[in-house]
Simulated scan of single mutants.
Amino acid sequence: MAAELRRLGLQPTLWDAAERRTSVVARVPGRDPERAALVVHGHLDVVPADPANWSVDPFGGEIRDGMLWGRGAVDMKNMDAMILTALGDLHAAGEQPARDLVVAFFADEENGGVFGSHPAVVQHPEWFAGATEAISEVGGYSVDIGGTRAYLLQTGEKALSWIKLTARGTAAHGSRVIRDNAVTKLARAVATLGAEEWPLHMTSTTTQLVGELRGILGLPDDAEPDEVVLATGTAAGFLQATLRVTGNPTVLEAGYKHNVIPDTASALVDLRPFAGQEDEVLDRVRELIGPDIELEVLHHDIGLEFPFEGALVEKMTATLQRHDPGAPVLPYLMSGGTDNKALAELGITGYGFAPLRLDAGLDFPAMFHGVDERVPLAALEFGRAVLADFLRDC
């Protein structure tokens, strides 16, 4: 990444928050240096992939059937590539972006930015001096809504609490009758938490989105939010989780031998509350798991929600519609999180704008952290062109 930036005449800084956790940052001079700068960022890391489950080498970057296959194809090396190529197009044309850009490629986002964006904003706020807004991943992509292609612009994201549950019991031979079994206690707690039906919670963003969706789908004004979201087809893979708190057990650890009852068992849970609900949700989790289960918060990060208005939103919307005339652009709240959370510590307002025009039959939400992750080449070409135009006029 640094070599590509140098080829554009830039001087990138490489910084390691920890061993093998390298972030790359560069500043691109704009036509109007008096304006506030825009941070354009992505992350370099990806989640693991088991080659045994894939139909291609997950790290081979294979092109097949008009698509680029590989881990990170959508999360989020696609945006990283579009940033570089869009900047390259401006450079080749002898053009500058409308204002200064802080281009940042962070390490460690999939680990919550612990060794990436979070220490970067704390230890090197000067890299982001003068920046007030940012764009990054998981927004600006198209979805098919009842035969209408629309674009979802990410204006917020839920909060994040990664928690660990621990049960303790009596270690013993596996053949004995042991009621104080740590695995059994943990299993009950995990099953109860996993089955919890969290109540509907509408934010200003989801209220606006559901209203827009009702109009596009021709549904009555009193159609329930769940009904509306499920009617969007594959887009519901992202949107459904924005209506409620989610709490998904993801890792279980216990024992070391078939005939030994362990004295401890633990589970990791990915908990996504809404901004401002974190303590309330943790209290509810404690009620669900009971007093015998220990709860530890391993990592917490804030939720964000910004208005679907203002000059930056108008420029993103106008650029998308210039390349896809007549397509509605809608706000949405992301169920996951991005490095915009860290930039918010510096007062920077962050949106998701990684533009992709996708085929109606592609289940895009399933690509994130999924098997056989892939992105259409035509979508990358579209995004490159949209992003270059946006940066030229941002």
Rank of each mutant, 00 (worst) to 15 (best):
Thr170Cys: 06
Ser175Asn: 06
Thr203Gly: 08
Leu10Asp: 09
Tyr332His: 01
Arg149Met: 06
Leu200Ala: 14
Leu304Tyr: 10
Met202Asn: 04
Ile178Pro: 03
Glu126Ile: 04
Arg392Leu: 12
Val210Pro: 05
Arg188Ala: 12
Asp279Thr: 14
Glu197Gly: 04
Thr338Arg: 00
Ala191Glu: 14
Ala26Ser: 12
Ala254Thr: 06
Arg7Ser: 15
Trp127Thr: 10
Glu212Arg: 14
His258Leu: 15
Lys77Arg: 12
Trp15Pro: 04
Gly66Met: 02
Ala187Pro: 09
Gly218Ile: 01
Glu126Gly: 10
His118Lys: 09
Leu193Asn: 11
Ile293Glu: 01
Ser175Tyr: 03
Thr232Ser: 09
His118Thr: 02
Asp89Phe: 02
Leu358Phe: 04
Thr148Lys: 08
Arg214Met: 11
Arg31Glu: 14
Ala388Gly: 06
Leu391Ser: 09
Ile261Arg: 12
Val46Asn: 02
Met67Glu: 03
His41Asp: 09
Val329Pro: 00
Gly276Gln: 08
Ala81Gly: 03
Asp270Gln: 14
Arg6Trp: 05
Leu356Phe: 15
Ala182Leu: 04
Cys394Phe: 05
Met316Gly: 02
Phe368Met: 10
Asp100Thr: 10
Pro220Glu: 10
Ala3Phe: 02
Thr166His: 05
Tyr141Ser: 07
Leu90Arg: 12
Pro29Glu: 11
His173Val: 06
Ala191Thr: 15
Gly88Val: 00
Gly174Val: 13
Leu333Lys: 01
His91Asp: 11
Thr148Asn: 12
Ala182Ser: 12
Gly116Asp: 03
Ile302Val: 15
Gly215Phe: 03
Gly255Ser: 11
Ala360Trp: 05
His300Tyr: 07
Trp15Glu: 07
Gln321Pro: 00
Phe238Val: 05
Asp263Thr: 06
Gly72Ile: 00
Pro97Ser: 14
Thr203Gln: 05
Asp180Arg: 07
Ser142Pro: 02
Glu296Leu: 12
Glu212Phe: 03
Arg64Pro: 07
Arg179Ile: 05
His300Ile: 02
Phe306Cys: 07
Val329Cys: 01
Glu309Thr: 09
Leu380Ile: 02
Gly30Val: 01
Met82Ala: 07
Arg384Thr: 06
Asp144Ile: 03
Asp393Val: 07
Glu19Ile: 07
Leu343Ile: 07
Phe306Glu: 13
Ala159Ile: 10
Glu278Leu: 03
Leu282Asn: 09
Ile178Cys: 11
Glu253Gln: 13
Lys315Gln: 15
Ala187Val: 08
Ser204Gly: 14
Thr155Cys: 15
Leu377Ile: 04
Asp57Cys: 08
Gly30Ala: 13
Ala2Leu: 03
Asp283Glu: 11
Leu44Trp: 04
Met202Tyr: 02
Glu294Met: 10
Asp270Pro: 14
Gly60Ser: 05
Val56Asn: 04
Ala265Glu: 11
Pro119Lys: 04
Ala98Leu: 04
Gln123Glu: 15
Ser23Ile: 03
Leu68Ala: 07
Pro249Arg: 15
Asn340His: 13
Ser136Lys: 04
Glu373Arg: 08
Val269Ala: 09
Ala18Thr: 08
Arg392His: 12
Val46Cys: 01
Arg284Met: 05
Val103Ser: 13
Ser23Tyr: 08
Thr132Phe: 08
Gly9Thr: 08
Leu380Tyr: 00
Gly156Ala: 00
Thr205Val: 01
Thr246Gly: 01
Tyr351Gly: 00
Thr203Cys: 00
Glu278Val: 03
Thr232Phe: 01
Ser55Phe: 03
Val313His: 10
Ile261Met: 12
